[in-house]
Design a protein around this nucleic acid. Structure first.
Length: 499
RNA sequence: GGCGCUAUCGUCUAGGGGUCUAGGACAGGUGGUUCUCAGCCAUCAGACCGGGGUUCGAAUCCCCGUAGCGCUACCA
């Protein structure tokens, strides 16, 4: 029921607020995804806000990297850097006046006070508290400063921070969308800093001011922020603002169950991109980390997720990032791609890695290679692995594969015979090549598989490859003949244990 | 240490008191198909952290314990 003066039922407004202190990691990407999906599903607005109040750690490179990763994933923002919006600026470093303004009003209202304690002092007092077995928290020294003394310190021009004067009793409670009721006793909190002595806001203050001014209705963030929520709730109360709804999504852990970090290997979405993962798979995988549709269906496109995602279906237990599932999903999405698109992605991927062997070939050849690799393609990197025999001029021979071949009898002559057939094949199609080889095997009285095995090592240098007729076709007549003969010569020159 | 969050197969999860002899997926085993591998098909193995309650009945509700993680900064 609406009353005069009430806000009209506002549509959902969510935000993703990374700090530009490094690449976008998968945990952040997942938070961004959930925010994005929630906004899309509810017909709301997705805001991107940059929390760069830590001047020492924030960099432009990080900022650019975050934009790039979000764009790659397809998570477009409706308001924020690059696109603008009515609630800007969207960089906290450009909003100092806002924080100062609200800081002053809190101070005037007696809800905040200047603190002249130095960092060293604070550190020492904390140490003493810990030594005494007490919880380390601000002792309130400057809160109880008498007005004359406070005035004197101000006039002396001592660096001052602004601290929030917390209520000593009561509870901060909220109904979390993913966890239900969460409560903290206020007395356990301490008078935290709102504005640093350099005038920049700390996280909790900036966050509350911005969420309010940007009219954020739903705060969806990692559950490492749960214990910040009571502090923020208290700020909303002190400022006379209505707090948003909170949804604390579980964190993503490394294989060992601890918070995902560099020691768990690749953690940035950029790294997965470089490894040949598709944004489609990444999005699908991230969505499944914490959210489920019905426990059965697992394959989703971003567009489908925008329709099906519900914050209420997000679970509350932390998830371990397991790459095997990502790889499987990547294979699924790769196969779902129309062939032409798959070829395009392979070309793009190889080009980004500075490999030109693929894109120099004809479209028909490119398509044939990708088709020959077929379902072996789980990541785009596999295109290079399985296509190396045709992409690279010099053949790298796997030692184990060769060792096996070397010990087998009759290989040399057989490879030479096959070379002759291939050389004589005027049509050179998959059909004629198959006829050549199977015909020869029959004449030699051996199984086709045996001849194929030897040819595979000779032509690709490996024990594993795409189908042998495709291999021959991709290599072309000249290269095929040459490799077969080279292998035969090498076999003939090799001493054999049993001979 | 204090506070908080979490707890179902190795992993991601379904499950909201009886239909659960707990379902699906990845990974793993076995068999089949094929020129290898991948894929595909079939099949097997694999879990409700422990202890108390509540209830006719608990994976599901409550309490305690345990474990993991997070926060405990003039980081975010």
């Amino acid at each position: 029921m609406a009353f005069p003066g009430d806000h009209l039922p506002v549509s959902v407004r969510v935000r993703f607020a990374p700090s530009p202190t490094g690449h976008l990691h998968v945990g952040g990407a997942r938070t961004a995804l959930f925010n994005y999906l929630h906004a899309r599903r509810q017909g709301g607005v997705f805001v991107l806000r940059i929390e760069d109040t830590d001047a020492a750690r924030s960099t432009d490179e990080s900022l650019a990297a975050i934009f790039e990763s979000l764009e790659w994933l397809g998570l477009s923002w409706d308001e924020g850097p690059k696109v603008g919006g009515a609630h800007g600026p969207y960089l906290q470093s450009k909003r100092r006046d806002r924080y100062a303004l609200h800081g002053r009003s809190l101070e005037t209202a007696g809800r905040a006070y200047p603190c002249f304690c130095s960092a060293e002092d604070l550190e020492e007092r904390r140490r003493a508290q810990t030594a005494r077995g007490e919880p380390p928290r601000y002792d309130g020294r400057c809160r109880s400063l008498d007005p004359a003394e406070r005035q004197r310190q101000m006039e002396a021009g001592l660096p001052r921070a602004l601290r929030f004067a917390l209520p000593e009793s009561g509870e901060s409670v909220w109904d979390d969308v993913v966890r239900g009721r969460v409560a903290f006793r206020n007395e356990l909190l301490d008078d935290f800093v709102l504005l640093r002595s350099d005038g920049l806001p700390t996280y909790n203050f900036a966050c509350v001011v911005d969420d309010h001014e940007m009219e954020i209705t739903d705060v969806v963030r990692g559950d490492d922020h749960i214990s910040n929520t009571p502090r923020q709730l208290l700020l909303y109360e002190a400022l006379g603002w209505t707090p948003p709804r909170f949804a604390h999504v579980p964190m993503i852990l490394g294989q060992d169950g601890t918070r995902l970090s560099k020691r768990h290997g690749a953690t940035s979405v950029a790294a997965y991109r470089e490894r040949g993962f598709l944004p489609e798979a990444m999005v699908n995988f991230l969505a499944l980390l914490g959210w489920s549709y019905d426990g059965q269906r697992e394959l989703f496109s971003l567009a489908e997720l925008e329709q099906l995602f519900r914050l209420e279906r997000v679970g509350s237990n932390p998830a371990i990032f397991n790459v095997e599932k990502l790889e499987w999903l990547n294979g699924q999405h790769l196969r779902a791609l129309p062939e032409a698109e798959r070829v395009r992605r392979v070309a793009e991927f190889l080009r980004a890695r500075g490999e030109t062997g693929f894109e120099m070939r004809s479209p028909e050849w490119q398509q044939a290679l990708v088709r020959a690799i077929g379902d072996r393609l789980k990541t785009l990197t596999d295109a290079r692995t399985y296509g190396a025999f045709a992409l690279e001029e010099t053949l790298e021979v796997d030692e184990a594969a060769w060792a096996e071949l070397r010990e087998r009898p009759e290989v040399g002559p057989r490879l030479r015979a096959l070379a002759a057939r291939v050389a004589a094949d005027r049509e050179f199609t998959l059909e004629t090549l198959e006829r050549d080889l199977r015909g020869l095997a029959a004449e030699l009285g051996i199984k086709a598989g045996e001849l194929i095995g030897a040819a595979r090592v000779a032509l690709t240098g490996r024990k594993v490859s795409p189908g042998i007729f495709e291999v021959l076709w991709l290599l072309g007549r000249d290269r095929s003949v040459r490799r077969l003969e080279d292998a035969a010569a090498r076999w003939e020159a090799s001493p054999r244990a049993g001979v």
